[in-house]
């Protein structure tokens, strides 16, 4: 239950600060490769520096029965669907670009947190940790390459 404690610690730390000054919209632009398959499921989630799960940012793909193929996210959450309530959208087709804009706490950056993206496509191999990106100020604006389905992921303010 380490991850719950971590999340709790983070949220108490954040809520003790004035919220307005500390939040900003962050855009995640994901360009998919032309991998020649059906729409990809993508799970965006955050762990701390030790790899303990903190929380989810986005889930591309609406059918919970396929989430077990996002094996990193599945292992981190135990497949808990409530973790992505209100932050779930459609799967992303081959060669398409997904742009998500989220109002995130400022304290997320430069605090040792790591963004993970898991990817999976019907009848193709699962790609957990397709992208592993430490959330630092340096990472902002620099495209990162994925291991399989994702061409580039860019985090920007």
């Amino acid at each position: 239950m380490k991850h719950l404690l971590a999340a709790l610690a983070l949220s108490t730390a954040l809520t003790s600060l004035p919220a307005l000054a500390e939040a900003r919209p962050v855009t995640f632009t994901t360009q998919m490769r032309s991998y020649g398959g059906d729409g990809a499921y993508l799970a965006f989630y955050v762990t701390d520096a030790q790899g303990a799960y903190v929380g989810s940012l986005w889930m591309a793909g609406g059918k919970a029965k396929y989430y077990k193929h996002l094996s990193g996210w599945q292992a981190a959450t135990g497949g808990d669907r409530t973790q992505v309530d209100g932050i779930t959208g459609a799967s992303v087709g081959s060669g398409r670009e997904l742009k998500i804009t989220l109002d995130l706490q400022d304290a997320l950056f430069d605090a040792g947190y790591v963004l993970h993206v898991d990817a999976a496509v019907e009848d193709m191999r699962d790609s957990p940790n397709e992208i592993v990106l430490p959330l630092t100020s340096d990472a902002v604006g620099a495209p990162v390459t994925g291991r399989g389905y994702i061409d580039t992921l860019t985090v920007s303010f």
Binding site: L14, G55, V84, G86
Partner: peptide, 8 residues
């Protein structure tokens, strides 16, 4: 969005 501390 879930109250996981990440979202404003």
């Amino acid at each position: 969005p879930p109250a996981n501390g990440l979202f404003a």
